[in-house]
Amino acid sequence: MGAVSATTLWVVTIATGVLSLALKVAGHVVPARWLEHPRLTRINALVPIVLLSALVVAEALVERTRLVLDHRLAGVAVALGLLLARAPFPVVVVGAALASALVYHLH
């Protein structure tokens, strides 16, 4: 993970808050026709899926700009198995953490 500068952390915290709030307010105050385009709606419906997918692999397999196979992959593999077995969300997260920590300490 490495050290991230304090400024970066504050910028991300504040800018994410302001931008998120601004987008929410926009939906309630701007005319509907500005935002209602079928193509925009279709693409927007896919955005959570692509970004969450990218976040899964980025967090599980990437160290800055390199691909690495380490303890995190073991955790995510266990998470996948638990999801396939229809385990609830907290079980999935805790199971992944336990598996990852185990592999981390064995190394």
């Binding site: 993970m1 959570p48 899926i49 969450l52 997918s53 976040l55 899964v56 692999v57 980025a58 967090e59 599980a60 303890h71 995190r72 073991a74 955790g75 995510v76 266990v78 998470a79 996948l80 999801l83 969300f89 999935v92 997260v93 805790v94 199971g95 992944a96 953490a97 336990l98 598996a99 990852s100 920590a101 185990l102 981390y104 300490h105």
Partner: peptide
């Protein structure tokens, strides 16, 4: 040490 670095991608998978 507590697997939190794997809990995060697991949470993303759980959200996906």
């Amino acid at each position: 040490a507590f697997g939190l670095d794997a809990a995060v991608p697991a949470a993303f998978l759980g959200l996906l």
